[in-house]
Amino acid sequence: MEVRTIKVFTTVDNINLHTQVVDMSMTYGQQFGPTYLDGADVTKIKPHNSHEGKTFYVLPNDDTLRVEAFEYYHTTDPSFLGRYMSALNHTKKWKYPQVNGLTSIKWADNNCYLATALLTLQQIELKFNPPALQDAYYRARAGEAANFCALILAYCNKTVGELGDVRETMSYLFQHANLDSCKRVLNVVCKTCGQQQTTLKGVEAVMYMGTLSYEQFKKGVQIPCTCGKQATKYLVQQESPFVMMSAPPAQYELKHGTFTCASEYTGNYQCGHYKHITSKETLYCIDGALLTKSSEYKGPITDVFYKENSYTTTIK
C-alpha cells in the first residue's frame, strides 16, 4: 500500500517557510505537534488534498525554529505562539472599519479597549522592536488589523473576551517599542525636605499616572512627601515624541487643539466601556464603527496623549 502524501510549508514567522512532505494517514499533531492554519487549530486533523502548498504555523520545537521565533517575536515564552494563534482565530472574524481616516474595530468580545489602543497607536510616533509587531502594525494602518490585535493580546497575556485596560495595554506595548531616546527629568520640591531631581528613561519617561493635564504637570502637581507634608512635583525636561497622561476616570474637559487623542471610560472596574476622542479640525468621538463630532467635550476621561518633541522648564 502506497503512502499518500502532500507537500506543505511549516513556519513560526510566515517569513521562513520549511518544506514538509506530510503523510495523509496521520494527523498534523502526530507529525508536527500543535499546528495552526489561519489561526485555526488543526492539530487533530489529517492532511487533505486542499492543504497542498498551504502554510501551517507550528510551535518552535527545534533550534532553527526557536531562533526564527525569537528573532521575529522577541520572546522565548513557549506558550506565546499558541496564544497568538488562538487569538487570531477570533480577531480574523472582527470587522476593521476605516473611521475618520483611522483603522478602528467594530465592537465584539469586549474589544473596546483594543480599538482605543489601536486608534491611539496610529496617532503617536512609535516604532516597535519585534519585527512581528512592526509588520502587523503597518498592515493594521492599511486596514488589516487582525494579526496586530492578536499579537497585542498575546504580548499582554490576554484572551479574547476578557476586559482590558488601555493604560495597561499601552504599557505592555511600550515595553516592546523603541523608547531608548526618551528621557524625563522631574523635580520634587518640599518646604521641609528641599528639592530632589529624578531622571527617568524609556517607558517611565512617557507615562504618568495622577493627572490628565500635561500643562498642569509642567506647572506642578501636589504629591505627598515622605515627611508627610505636601510637596510639588513638576516637569523639568521632556525628550520624547509623545507623552501619555493618565488618571482614574473623572469628568474632564478636553479643549480642541490642546491634545492629540484621549480615552474615555464609562462604567466601573468590573464592567465598563471605552471610547476614543481625537482632536482634528474639530473633536471626534470614535466608538467602534461609530463616529460623532463636537466642538467641545466633557466626560469621564482616563488617558490623554500629547505630541511632544523637546521641553525644558522655565521655572527657576
Rank of each mutant, 00 (worst) to 15 (best):
2 E>C: 09
2 E>P: 09
3 V>A: 11
3 V>W: 11
3 V>R: 12
3 V>Y: 13
4 R>Q: 13
7 K>Q: 15
8 V>I: 14
10 T>K: 13
11 T>F: 06
12 V>P: 09
12 V>L: 10
13 D>Y: 01
14 N>K: 11
15 I>S: 12
17 L>E: 11
19 T>C: 15
19 T>H: 13
20 Q>S: 12
20 Q>K: 14
21 V>L: 13
22 V>T: 11
24 M>Q: 09
24 M>G: 09
25 S>W: 11
26 M>F: 03
28 Y>R: 00
29 G>F: 08
29 G>M: 08
30 Q>C: 14
31 Q>D: 03
32 F>Y: 06
35 T>F: 05
36 Y>A: 02
37 L>D: 12
38 D>S: 13
39 G>W: 03
39 G>P: 03
40 A>Q: 11
41 D>S: 10
42 V>Y: 13
43 T>V: 04
43 T>I: 01
44 K>S: 12
46 K>G: 06
48 H>T: 10
48 H>I: 12
50 S>G: 11
51 H>E: 08
51 H>A: 05
52 E>V: 10
53 G>L: 12
54 K>Y: 12
56 F>G: 00
56 F>P: 00
56 F>I: 05
56 F>H: 00
57 Y>V: 12
58 V>H: 04
59 L>Y: 08
61 N>R: 10
61 N>E: 12
62 D>H: 09
62 D>T: 13
63 D>H: 10
66 R>V: 07
66 R>Q: 14
66 R>I: 11
68 E>V: 08
68 E>M: 08
69 A>L: 12
70 F>M: 13
70 F>Q: 11
70 F>K: 12
72 Y>P: 05
72 Y>R: 12
73 Y>R: 01
74 H>A: 05
74 H>P: 00
75 T>A: 06
75 T>P: 01
76 T>M: 11
76 T>N: 04
80 F>T: 00
82 G>N: 15
83 R>E: 00
83 R>V: 01
83 R>D: 01
85 M>T: 03
89 N>F: 15
89 N>W: 15
91 T>L: 03
91 T>K: 00
91 T>Q: 01
92 K>Q: 11
92 K>L: 13
92 K>P: 02
93 K>D: 08
93 K>H: 08
96 Y>F: 10
96 Y>V: 01
96 Y>H: 02
98 Q>A: 11
99 V>K: 01
99 V>Y: 07
102 L>D: 01
102 L>N: 00
104 S>F: 06
104 S>P: 04
104 S>M: 03
107 W>M: 15
107 W>G: 15
108 A>W: 06
108 A>Y: 06
109 D>W: 01
110 N>S: 01
111 N>H: 03
113 Y>W: 12
113 Y>G: 04
113 Y>Q: 06
115 A>Q: 01
115 A>V: 02
117 A>D: 03
117 A>N: 05
118 L>A: 02
118 L>D: 02
119 L>S: 02
119 L>T: 01
120 T>C: 15
120 T>W: 06
121 L>R: 02
124 I>N: 05
124 I>H: 05
125 E>N: 10
126 L>S: 03
126 L>N: 00
126 L>W: 03
127 K>D: 15
128 F>M: 02
129 N>E: 15
130 P>C: 14
130 P>S: 10
131 P>K: 05
131 P>F: 00
132 A>R: 03
132 A>M: 06
134 Q>F: 05
134 Q>N: 13
134 Q>H: 14
134 Q>E: 14
136 A>R: 01
136 A>W: 05
138 Y>D: 14
139 R>Q: 15
140 A>T: 07
141 R>V: 14
141 R>H: 06
142 A>D: 14
142 A>S: 13
142 A>K: 14
142 A>V: 12
143 G>Y: 00
144 E>F: 07
144 E>W: 04
144 E>Q: 08
144 E>P: 02
144 E>C: 09
144 E>K: 12
145 A>D: 01
146 A>R: 02
146 A>H: 06
147 N>R: 10
147 N>T: 12
149 C>T: 08
150 A>G: 02
151 L>M: 07
152 I>T: 15
154 A>S: 07
155 Y>A: 00
155 Y>T: 00
156 C>F: 01
156 C>L: 10
158 K>T: 05
158 K>H: 00
158 K>N: 05
158 K>P: 02
158 K>E: 00
159 T>P: 15
160 V>I: 14
161 G>M: 02
161 G>E: 04
162 E>D: 14
163 L>A: 14
163 L>I: 09
164 G>Y: 03
164 G>S: 08
164 G>D: 00
165 D>K: 07
166 V>Y: 12
167 R>M: 05
169 T>D: 03
170 M>S: 01
171 S>V: 12
171 S>A: 14
171 S>H: 13
171 S>C: 14
175 Q>A: 15
176 H>F: 12
176 H>R: 12
177 A>P: 00
179 L>T: 02
181 S>K: 13
182 C>W: 00
182 C>T: 03
183 K>Q: 08
184 R>I: 10
184 R>V: 12
185 V>G: 05
185 V>P: 03
186 L>M: 12
187 N>R: 12
188 V>P: 03
188 V>G: 01
188 V>R: 07
189 V>A: 07
189 V>L: 08
190 C>F: 03
190 C>E: 00
190 C>H: 03
192 T>E: 15
194 G>M: 02
194 G>W: 04
195 Q>F: 09
195 Q>P: 11
196 Q>W: 13
196 Q>M: 11
196 Q>A: 10
196 Q>D: 05
197 Q>S: 12
199 T>E: 14
199 T>C: 12
199 T>K: 08
200 L>D: 09
201 K>V: 15
201 K>L: 08
202 G>Q: 02
202 G>K: 06
203 V>W: 14
203 V>M: 15
203 V>S: 09
204 E>T: 05
204 E>A: 12
204 E>Q: 10
204 E>R: 08
206 V>K: 05
206 V>S: 06
208 Y>S: 09
209 M>I: 09
210 G>D: 06
211 T>E: 14
213 S>K: 03
213 S>P: 07
213 S>R: 05
213 S>H: 06
218 K>E: 05
218 K>R: 06
218 K>Y: 05
219 K>I: 11
221 V>P: 02
221 V>Q: 06
222 Q>F: 13
224 P>H: 11
224 P>Y: 12
225 C>T: 03
225 C>R: 04
228 G>V: 03
229 K>P: 05
229 K>N: 11
230 Q>W: 10
231 A>V: 07
231 A>P: 04
232 T>H: 06
232 T>N: 10
232 T>C: 11
233 K>N: 05
235 L>K: 07
235 L>S: 04
235 L>C: 09
239 E>W: 05
240 S>G: 06
241 P>H: 09
242 F>N: 07
242 F>L: 06
243 V>M: 07
244 M>G: 06
244 M>W: 12
245 M>R: 04
246 S>H: 02
246 S>T: 08
247 A>R: 07
248 P>C: 14
249 P>C: 11
250 A>V: 08
251 Q>K: 12
252 Y>K: 05
254 L>N: 07
254 L>S: 02
254 L>V: 04
255 K>D: 03
255 K>P: 06
255 K>Q: 13
255 K>I: 11
255 K>H: 15
256 H>Y: 02
257 G>V: 00
258 T>I: 05
258 T>K: 10
259 F>I: 07
261 C>A: 03
262 A>T: 00
262 A>H: 07
262 A>R: 08
264 E>P: 03
265 Y>M: 15
266 T>N: 15
267 G>N: 10
268 N>L: 07
269 Y>P: 07
270 Q>D: 15
270 Q>W: 09
270 Q>T: 15
273 H>A: 06
275 K>A: 04
275 K>S: 10
276 H>Y: 01
276 H>W: 09
276 H>V: 01
276 H>R: 04
277 I>R: 05
277 I>P: 07
277 I>H: 04
279 S>C: 08
282 T>A: 12
284 Y>D: 07
284 Y>N: 08
288 G>F: 03
290 L>H: 15
290 L>V: 13
290 L>C: 14
292 T>Q: 15
292 T>G: 09
292 T>S: 11
293 K>I: 10
293 K>L: 09
293 K>R: 10
294 S>P: 11
294 S>E: 14
294 S>G: 09
295 S>G: 13
295 S>D: 13
296 E>N: 10
296 E>H: 13
297 Y>F: 06
298 K>A: 12
298 K>R: 09
299 G>Q: 06
300 P>K: 14
300 P>V: 15
301 I>W: 04
303 D>S: 06
306 Y>D: 05
307 K>A: 14
307 K>C: 11
308 E>R: 05
309 N>V: 12
309 N>H: 12
310 S>E: 11
311 Y>R: 07
313 T>C: 10
313 T>S: 09
314 T>E: 15
